[in-house]
Design a protein around this nucleic acid. Sequence first.
DNA 1: AGGTCGATTGTAAACGCTTACAAATTTGGC
DNA 2: GCCAAATTTGTAAGCGTTTACAATCGACCT
Lengths: 348, 348
Amino acid sequence: MPQANTPRVRIQDVAALSGLSICTVSRALRQLPNVSEHARGRARDAAAKLGYKASSAASRLAGGSTGSVAIIAPTATAWFFARAVEAAEEVFADGGYDTVLISLRNRSGVQPKLFGDLAGLAQRVDGVLLLNIALGETEMAALAESGLAVASVGMHGVPWDNVGIDNAEAARAAATHLLELGHRDLAILAGSETGAPTVVTASERRRGFELALADHGLTVDPDRVIDAGSSIEGGRLAMVKLIESGRMPSAVFAGCDETAFGALMALRESGLSAPENVSIIGIDDHQMSWFLGLTTMAQPVADQGAFAATLLIDRLHRSGLPNPPFAGPPSNHLLETKLVERNSTRGR
Amino acid sequence: MPQANTPRVRIQDVAALSGLSICTVSRALRQLPNVSEHARGRARDAAAKLGYKASSAASRLAGGSTGSVAIIAPTATAWFFARAVEAAEEVFADGGYDTVLISLRNRSGVQPKLFGDLAGLAQRVDGVLLLNIALGETEMAALAESGLAVASVGMHGVPWDNVGIDNAEAARAAATHLLELGHRDLAILAGSETGAPTVVTASERRRGFELALADHGLTVDPDRVIDAGSSIEGGRLAMVKLIESGRMPSAVFAGCDETAFGALMALRESGLSAPENVSIIGIDDHQMSWFLGLTTMAQPVADQGAFAATLLIDRLHRSGLPNPPFAGPPSNHLLETKLVERNSTRGR
DNA sequence: AGGTCGATTGTAAACGCTTACAAATTTGGC
DNA sequence: GCCAAATTTGTAAGCGTTTACAATCGACCT
């Protein structure tokens, strides 16, 4: 392989220029304690003048950090994940970290394989950001053993920093909006449950729906709970089922915007529409929701990704400290959701 | 930082178990020539038994490969890029490479900075996959100097492997579809030009449009060429302009599906619709196009990403060979586009 | 047989950094 | 001013590979 022709600037060059020893330069540049301000300044200046950046390979090999983190997502194409990934990548980049993208691509097999060789991953990255990953017991253990710093988005009851929204509350607010509009016959296009206790988005949203009904003295009719996954097609099929039942609900709460899109499509295919024949509300505020006039509970996706990334970096920075693991108990942050009224809902 | 508790399996362990020298094991495992089949077998067996995988850090430091590649994209959230990235990531993962995601996030500043320190990147990855990146002279030179293997999607006249579609041809086919439907007054919602000669998507599509008209003895009316960028909002604004001009064209060719979405939205806002008041065709076959019933020229996005990734890996594999750079002249592959008729177009 | 050449294998020196540990320097209490 | 303790700095030994280069081993010619 052809090599770059600029010979590498080594730490030794910085040491020479600054008149310090290699060791002192190394410590100074990594903000370690026990370095005089004077030395630190000289080292920094010399490094800057030479455009020095530590070789991540050498650094890693010698026991330092790799300067990169991995983002593990179920898929990279879905709207939610694409946005979260990009926001996190930006934070990582600004923090000087490379972002290794690992998409599970909804293919069975890649997650087990990945967690089966976590030690290998741990060797290449300093930490991982998990996006809505359903983890089994073994996997949690593997993660703990790997020595990786971890943070996540949209996960539940995990022993590391997490950022998410209050799914139950968001669903409750959505359903309440429908209720306050005067609707009484509500259906829910529910997401499917994962089984793993770390990701409870779907069940929480369903619970919020129930809560809202209960607030209004209503109970959930099992016939009005339709499994729709979280895809457009799933939403469409679910709505078709509702239409064909001949007993159209007055309003529909879709577990996420994509499901709502599918429902909207099914409606149109039957010559119906929202809000004329039925009110529809979703959760997400997907990029296209505005376009389709979908009323929805907006959740700050980019913020979730960025925030979680920040938390991970913080951990990483504190990882030099003595008290493991990474100083401080895990935190869980719930970001605000907000009702965005458009014209897929109306009073009755 | 807490460390994994399994002590690393080193090449030395493999050497000991197989009764070979470290050096021979290293060569055997990397498929280098001048190793007897017998030795190769022993090395492989021992490595398998021990679950040995070379440390990428050590490997890199010693002059080997990093085992990772970077994908550089203008953004990771747009439909096209998200899909291409995921498809490429899959290929890379299957090939044993880590994928480092670098999004330019449409922020001025990050591209110059990135190319200003390509040497740094070159140290962390073996190759880069460029997605529709508009490159200046200096940047091309920096890339050549970096020693990185390169491949790209949707680029033009570049000295490395590229995969794309024939933009002029796709546009021509789209416009031709409109013409064959009997439309004569055509407008184009054109993408904006980048200025850099490496990305010519917009201008090629515009040229294709002109070609189609010419085929039918028509010429392009400058008033019917509206700059719309490639965003939904841009498409909407462009269509508004057309509507407000009071002189509605008979059919509209949108430079990409997202532009078409915006146009559709503008129509709806004015109480108009396609194909009743005007026929609309796009290029892409965006995930939502089916939903919106948009007729469009479908392009294989995932295939482009995957194919380009494959080409990059091939180069990487051949990079051990003597004749630089990476054996063989650059190739350019144009993938097929296909008309997908839905109901945003009709005859007149 | 002796010598040569090619293929295979081994030895040992990088690669650029981190980090025990030792050395040098400063600080501060009397 | 002097000594112990605390702080700052330097020395040198790895980290796990790759790769010149040297060594070994047969095979093949003459």
